[in-house]
Amino acid sequence: MPYAAQHLSQPPSRDELDRLTGATVVEFGTPWCGHCQRAQPHIEQALQDRAEVAHIKVEDGPGQRLGRTFGVKLWPTLVFMKDGKEFARLVRPQTAQEVLDAVKTIAAAT
């Protein structure tokens, strides 16, 4: 199955994320952020064969509260969740392997 991130017109609430079931990667950043742009190929490569992992991209910035509830300070920040609980986090990933290792953490979580 081809890789496809879920772009939401309205970010989910923290309560909605906390109620999610299964494995989810929540990516905080912006389309214009250079660090975010450099990380995209790594994120896409790591998630391309992981259809069981939902990928939600959340545009972060002034007036966006969701990132603050996760303590996001730098972009991109990837929060790896399983059944609504955070199991891993990456800030500015440099390789696809880093992202894949964190994905494996949530896949193995019970």
Rank of each mutant, 00 (worst) to 15 (best):
T110V: 04
F80H: 11
E59M: 11
E52Q: 14
L78D: 02
E44Y: 09
Q64A: 11
D101F: 00
G71A: 01
Q40N: 13
V91K: 04
V91I: 10
G61N: 10
K85V: 15
A88N: 12
D60A: 10
D49Y: 09
R68D: 14
W75C: 13
Q94G: 10
G61F: 06
G84P: 07
L47G: 00
V91E: 11
P93W: 09
A102G: 04
G84M: 11
R68G: 11
Q48Y: 08
A109P: 04
T105E: 11
V91G: 05
L78Y: 03
I56S: 01
A88E: 13
K82H: 07
G61M: 00
L47Y: 08
L100F: 06
G84N: 05
E98C: 07
A96D: 14
W75S: 08
D83H: 14
K104C: 02
T77L: 10
I106C: 04
Q94E: 08
R65C: 02
Q94W: 06
I56A: 02
Q94Y: 00
D101V: 00
E86L: 03
D101N: 03
A108S: 10
P93N: 11
K57I: 12
K57Q: 09
Q64W: 09
H42D: 01
E98S: 03
H42K: 08
A102W: 01
A102Y: 02
T77D: 07
K73M: 07
T110R: 13
V91R: 00
F80D: 12
D60R: 06
A46D: 08
